[in-house]
Design a binder for these strands. Structure first.
Lengths: 253, 253
DNA sequence: ACTCCCAAACATATCAGATAACTTTGAACA
DNA sequence: TGTTCAAAGTTATCTGATATGTTTGGGAGT
């Protein structure tokens, strides 16, 4: 079986491919996320193929991220998210550290654009979401610095949430999905970066200060300033990650 | 079955998931693209499961774009490309025209970065590839303008090839994959854009002129100028697409 | 009436064995 | 040497059966 350029599963003479194509089309056009597919038995009789063929087609679509499968339950149409892209990245990155920095480069570009667009387009709700994430960081900073691991994790989650809120406020759905996928992949890198923070004497308050600056620019509708602040913030983060990685390398030798 | 955050297929209690995870790991670490997987029968005995279980796991990985399957042949490890991401985009875009412009926005950001990085990093071979694509456009422009459809298609292909060569010359593999995936999705939009060209009195030579400017900046190692030229070129393209779409809408009414 | 629990119905997960159809390979033949 | 073709290898699909998880509706107990 071949996956064709159009994204369809070439099913010339392949029952599984035909069924998968048809199901994919139906999922994308007629079904809403959260809806259930008919049972395997019903699909089998509808397409006049065996249950096995249906199962393989459904597996194929699950692999593409269109369906969630669980034992005892019908297959459920998946809410679109960045997972498929994240899987794609996983297939490319493996353990390559160059790929990590490639990814950071791409993220920088996309987040700068997110901030720029957010400054132009964010509505009240979008700005409120960004503010709320920032407040979460502020509320947990003290405890995190004192060594409370739960607060530390909350701080980190709000940090990611801040960036995600900006991606969403950009009004560009694709940016949102890409952010989600990349942030999954970067989670490891970010943890390294926070160790880097400690090494460089950064404090969580520095991070907060950067975020405040970004938020302020977005609130003021200053697209250029928002993008530039984001760029500098991420450049900082990138440097931290580089330092942390070289420290790890040093300790290894 | 669930797809977990790490991109692995959660196989808690699921034979298919376990096998798929293990195979995926082996594919990514031990096998090179083009290599064949063992036969289903051999895998079945290796994992001590039935052939069916192997088949479903393989289907899952094929859906994720890791394997190519064909009847009568062993499954082949796929050369990484943008297809998985392209499929992902397909599941998001369907027929939404807003999504098309979302995509154009993202592409602009990524291609500007590609041009910027290419100016910094492109080696002789990379620049030669860009030049070669540009030459292809120049060689086909006259015939294309005179109405030769084959030359017109070649011109278009070289146009895409020019942008792809820049993405590759950026030295960032992820940018290359993303470009490939997005260009598949944008093919339709680009065709509309070329109709827009005609409407706005643009000529293919204008396109060539833009490309020459971009190439010159890359050759000179002027990152800022390369990025800016690319940005303006794509802004132009975006406007053409907008005009073409509104023309289509006008004709429809 | 209301709540809790459990068994039956439903649905997926996996196995086993068999046939069909396609690809590759190597030996026989011209 | 080159071509043909049959056999072996491999995937594609079907049928039918068992195991295991989920949902649901009715009955027991309060």
């Amino acid at each position: 079986m071949r996956i064709s350029r159009s994204g369809s599963i070439s099913g010339r003479g392949s029952a599984v491919g035909d069924v998968a194509d048809d199901l994919a089309h139906e999922i994308l056009t007629a079904l809403t996320p959260g809806a259930s597919l008919p049972s395997e038995a019903e699909l089998a009789s509808r397409y006049a193929v065996s249950r096995l063929t249906i199962r393989e087609a459904v597996k194929l679509l699950a692999g593409r991220g269109l369906l969630d499968i669980a034992r005892g339950r019908k297959a459920v149409v998946r809410v679109p998210d960045g997972t498929a892209f994240s899987d794609f990245l996983t297939s490319l990155l493996h353990n390559d550290s160059k790929s990590l920095f490639d990814l950071i480069e791409v993220r920088l570009s996309l987040e700068v654009q997110s901030a720029t667009l957010a400054a132009k387009r964010a509505n009240r709700a979008g700005i409120a979401a960004i503010e709320s994430a920032l407040r979460g960081m502020q509320d947990n900073a003290d405890a995190a610095i004192k060594g409370d691991p739960a607060a530390d994790r909350r701080f980190h989650d709000f940090d990611v949430g801040f960036h995600e809120a900006i991606a969403l406020a950009s009004g560009n759905r694709i940016l949102g999905y890409l952010f989600e996928a990349m942030s999954t992949q970067l989670r490891h890198g970010i943890q390294i970066s926070r160790r880097g923070h400690a090494n460089r004497g950064h404090t969580l308050y520095d991070t907060i200060a950067w975020h405040e600056r970004i938020l302020e620019a977005i609130r003021a509708g200053n697209a250029r300033a928002a993008g530039e602040a984001m760029r500098q913030h991420l450049k900082d983060t990138e440097n931290d990650i580089r330092n942390a990685l070289s420290n790890v390398a040093d300790q290894a030798t």
